[in-house]
Nucleic acid binder design. Structure first.
Length: 953
RNA sequence: GCUCUGGUGGUGGAAUGGUAGACACGAGGGACUUAAAAUCCCUUGACCGCAAGGUCGUGUGGGUUCAAGUCCCACCCGGAGUACCA
């Protein structure tokens, strides 16, 4: 009888569920291993075949580890807060909680059919109050901590207060801490808290009615929806992830991520070493106001009458011919001369009103304006003009640069456009200088020697950099420094479907709810849109005020700003809930703590994390930051959350097309009919009515009413469709739903096929062409164990040497493959093994039993069935991973001389204890020649695999 | 532009520096069958040859090595990330 997956797969899925086979306990007596998938956002579209790819890979690894005696934590949950459910709610009025619940049910149903070994008792959902309680709790901790540079970790904010009290230094308006009002004190602390409220230039998306984080904006458009995004100054919550910049860079050394992902993260953090240099303003000091000093206790505070610039090329300081400020720079109005005032103001307002998209689109266009003022180069004491231009960004460095047109392409373009002088200060050698006015581009490379550069002239670029910084520090006009591109993460969203902030406002200042009052549950609202006054949707809630006295959420009408205060109206962004979920899985039902000390001490952190690389700069960065903070405050026990990361490649869709005649809209011409290309237009056709590019004509006619009367011009009696690789999407009718495949071929075939498709990490188009081959393998496997009359063919007794060798080769290969995450080659090995065992007519338990265990991680259903039929009571999940008997793999064949073309090639087997190097040396020393070649000298020695060499004489 | 990836048959893809193309799909041929499905067997990188066998072959050109798809240098072409980051 053939393998009946329709009956067997559900049977074992039920068995696993009913017997709690995948339930994991925190059994500290066993070796631990934590395999995690990035939990999905349950979208309305359901899963397509791309989603389970990573889940299958991690499931195989989890099962493999379990068979090797590990206690494996392998949980799953849902990232269930997010925009799509809310957008849907705005359109339909359907509460996001209902949509989300429905989608989760659908996801669960789909996941269950594939036979994963998830411990569903540990499921978490980010929108569950019992979960987001701890998201809110972490936020409160972030609010109550600051980054202490001295100990290089987060410390409670009261430590800072103590320090400020003790120092008694003037902080704001010449007042010391004790002299400041409470509001002033709170404002001051906002500069230090790891979660803080500040006026920030944010990415405002008018269409979505919310602000977005940097990683949620690409090319000036929102990632979700693709709407334009503007820069806007708003009072927003932010997370001070920048405090962890260095540790986020350093941590990459300790983790096992792909080089490309590490590179993506390094680029995103954008660490660059260089110097901060102060260029004094060439104007009376009295005309310049003193800015607020945020750099407490720095050795040489910047004088108020100087601009601080950041440069990675201090060696070029002798080539500075002007300075440029960003249009947002706060000192522009103070330094602009009356004559230039009108022009500068016009430029600044023009620059500020430009959208992000316009600015980015016109990067090549040079614009700017002279302020009329001058600064002094601290090394040359030269007077240089100060310009304003939007090619200098407010968000990076200090928003002011020293311009070296000869050695920076942007400065070069600016100087050329405005006719500013260009001075060469770096050249290949002292002799090889030229007139920069004749150049067509600047010399940006960091190679060569300094020229025309005072005391550094003749030094190599690297040495000159160091020498200039030393000099600058000696003169007290700047210092060595490191700059990061990373920006703080904006943490407010003007949205409904997210975690509420555990924050209320007293005198306009934020205060956190006491921890024992959590969770602060998301209130009901009448409307999911912003309020008419432009407030976030929570502004519609009637009961959204905080009674400080009895710690209760009360009606807004009771707000008196004495005992009852307004609550925060924004909610947290998507990444809030996903930043620390992996820790919660360790102890998911704990009511009194995020997770217990015991649980985290046992599981430590994630051993293997599998997910898409699209989360490289978003989720991965936030999660690492979140974990480092929890580590600092003694919650997490490791500095990095994920030891090893595998990025599964995206599965693209393979679209099919039919070709509609241009003259006759009811006529469809097959792909290879001559002249088809000129006379037709391609139309996407549902891939589910196409098989191997052959259109099912009957189904096509039913597919849509307009094709009811379709006529066809065929080739060889078939209609052949065209195809193209595109993104998998509903609108292109190329979405492959895993359920359909499970129904047709079974879960085991789907699992094996997804792995067989190619390396997990590689992006690849989905194509069902090869699935038949895998399906055939499953049936062959079955037939190896089960006869035509459903009887077990497995026999006791000793297997042949040949059969033992076959299975041991498989054990070795598959174990290696799984360790290297090369699952596609494992599937090939299974196919070879089954073919060979079938050919060898092997039916001994000694060989067939280990094979079931090898296959179990990949195809658990059939493995379980065969395991039971072979007379085992327990589940195959508790079997022992077989060990390879290497002695069976040693070749013992003899070699034969083969002659051709007048040359002789000998293949000679060497004793097992002779290494290749030794063998080669021996051959060179003619020993082999004496031994085997009747004293003839070998002309050429060729090594072929392992311990065999070829000798040509 | 910069950074990271990758380039192997008709297709997906195998190859710790060691017989390139495993395995699978597709294609062709055959067996079984009244027929079909299913199953099984053979062929399948290109070229030459009746054959034995030979020659050429991993984007291009060099190099290292007894030996290179694999390592090094330069270039060409895809894919991804990032982008006025000073």
């Amino acid at each position: 009888m053939d393998y009946n997956f329709n009956e067997i797969e559900p049977k074992w899925q039920n068995y696993w569920r009913e017997n709690g086979v995948y339930k994991v306990t925190n059994d500290t007596s066993k070796k631990h291993y934590y395999v995690l998938d990035m939990f999905p956002y349950p979208s309305g579209a359901g899963l397509h075949v791309g989603h389970p790819l990573g889940y299958i890979a991690s499931d195989i690894y989890a099962r493999y580890k379990r068979l090797n005696g590990f206690n494996v934590l392998h949980p799953m949950g849902y990232d269930s807060y997010g925009l799509p459910a809310e957008q849907y709610a705005i359109q339909t009025g359907q509460h996001p909680a209902i949509t989300t619940e429905k989608n989760i049910c659908r996801y669960r149903e789909q996941l269950d059919k594939i036979g994963f070994s998830f411990d569903w008792d540990r499921e978490v959902r980010t929108c569950d109050p019992q979960y987001y309680k701890w998201t809110q709790w972490t936020f409160i901790q972030l609010f109550n901590h600051y980054y202490d540079e001295e100990s290089d970790k987060a410390m409670p904010i009261f430590h800072l207060v103590e320090k400020l009290k003790a120092e008694g230094k003037p902080l704001v308006d010449d007042k010391s801490w004790n002299e400041m009002s409470e509001t002033q004190q709170q404002e001051y602390l906002m500069n230090y808290r790891l979660a803080y409220l500040a006026d920030t230039a944010v990415n405002w998306c008018p269409e979505l009615g919310t602000v977005l984080a940097n990683d949620e904006v690409v090319n000036g458009l929102s990632v979700r929806g693709g709407y334009p995004v503007e820069r806007k100054l708003m009072r927003q919550w932010s997370l001070r992830i920048t405090a962890y910049s260095q540790r986020l860079v350093d941590g990459l050394e300790k983790v096992d991520y792909s080089d490309s992902l590490k590179e993506i993260q390094r680029n995103w953090i954008g660490r660059s070493e260089g110097a901060a240099v102060w260029f004094p303003i060439d104007a009376p000091a009295s005309e310049v106001e003193k800015p607020v000093d945020l750099f407490m206790g720095q050795v040489n505070p910047k004088p108020a009458t100087a601009f601080e610039i950041f440069t990675t090329r201090p060696d070029t300081i002798y080539g500075v011919t002007f300075m440029v400020l960003c249009p947002e720079h706060e000192m522009i109005s103070q330094i602009t001369t009356p004559e230039q005032k009108a022009e500068v103001e016009a430029y600044v307002s023009w620059a500020k009103n430009r959208s992000e998209r316009e600015r980015q689109a016109e990067v090549k266009k040079v614009s700017g304006v002279f302020t009329g003022s001058f600064a002094v180069n601290p090394l040359t004491e030269e007077k240089i003009p100060i310009w304003v231009s939007d090619y200098v960004l407010a968000g990076y460095g200090t928003g002011a640069i020293m311009a070296v047109p000869a050695h920076d392409s942007r400065d070069f373009a600016f100087a050329k456009h405005f006719g500013l002088p260009i001075r060469q200060v770096v050249a290949p050698s002292l002799e090889e200088t030229s007139d920069p006015d004749t150049w067509t581009e600047s010399m940006d490379a960091k190679v060569g020697v300094s020229v025309n550069s005072g005391f550094v002239t003749g030094m190599k670029v690297k040495d000159a950099m160091k020498a200039v910084i030393d000099k600058v520090e000696e003169l007290g006009t700047g210092h060595r420094t490191v700059n990061y591109r990373l920006r703080d993460a904006i943490f407010s969203r003007q949205r409904y479907w997210g975690e509420p902030f555990p924050i209320y406002y007293k005198n306009g200042m934020p205060y956190t709810l006491p921890e024992h009052c959590l969770p602060l549950c998301l209130p009901e609202v009448k409307d999911f849109k912003p309020t008419p006054t432009g407030e976030p949707p929570l502004g519609h809630a009637d009961k959204w005020a905080w009674n400080e006295k009895n710690c209760q959420v009360v009606e807004n009408s009771k707000i008196d700003n004495v005992n009852v205060f307004p609550l925060e109206l924004s909610t947290m962004p998507g990444f809030a809930g996903s930043s620390g979920y992996y820790l919660r899985y360790m102890d998911p039902r704990n009511d009194s703590e995020y997770f217990s000390k015991e649980a985290v001490s046992y599981w430590q952190n994630v051993d293997l994390y599998v997910g898409g690389s699209e989360h490289g700069t978003g989720h991965m960065m936030y999660a690492r930051f979140w974990n480092k903070f929890l580590f600092d405050i003694g919650m997490a026990v490791t500095d990095e959350p994920f030891k090893k990361l595998i990025n599964q490649g995206m599965i693209q869709g393979r679209s099919n097309f039919v070709y509609r005649s241009k003259n006759d809209s009811n006529l469809f011409i097959s792909k290879n009919v001559p002249g088809r290309e000129e006379n037709t237009v391609p139309i996407h056709v549902d891939i589910n009515i196409v098989d191997n590019d052959i259109l099912d004509i009957a189904k096509f006619k039913e597919w849509r009413p307009e094709f009811k009367d379709a006529r066809f011009e065929l080739e060889d009696g078939k209609y052949v469709c065209g195809w193209e690789i595109e993104k998998m999407s509903k609108s292109m009718f190329n979405v492959q739903n895993p359920d359909d495949l499970v129904e047709r071929y079974g879960a085991d075939t789907l699992r094996l096929y997804e792995m067989f498709l190619g390396p997990v990490e590689q992006a690849k188009p989905w194509d069902t062409k090869g699935i038949e081959g895998v399906f055939r393998f499953i049936r062959k496997l079955w037939k190896l164990y089960i006869g035509d009359n459903d009887e077990l063919k497995v026999e006791e007794g000793e297997a042949s040497k040949e059969a033992k060798k076959i299975i041991n080769q498989a054990i070795k290969k598959v174990s290696d493959d799984i360790e290297r995450f090369s699952f596609n080659t494992s599937v090939s090995t299974f196919m070879i093994t089954v073919n060979e065992l079938t050919a060898a007519k092997c039916s001994k338990r000694e060989v067939l039993e280990p094979l079931v265990v090898l296959v179990a991680p990949f195809a658990p259903h059939i493995a379980e069935e065969l395991w039971h039929r072979m007379g085992h009571d327990g589940t195959v999940c508790d079997a022992q991973w077989p060990v390879c008997d290497e002695s069976l793999l040693v070749e013992d064949t003899f070699t034969y001389p083969v002659s051709f073309n007048g040359k002789m090639r000998f293949t000679i087997e060497l004793p097992a204890n002779v290494s290749q190097d030794e063998a080669f040396a021996a051959v060179k020393a003619h020993e082999v020649g004496q031994k085997w070649l009747d004293g003839k000298e070998p002309k050429k020695v060729i090594f072929v695999p392992k311990k065999i060499i070829n000798i040509v004489i």
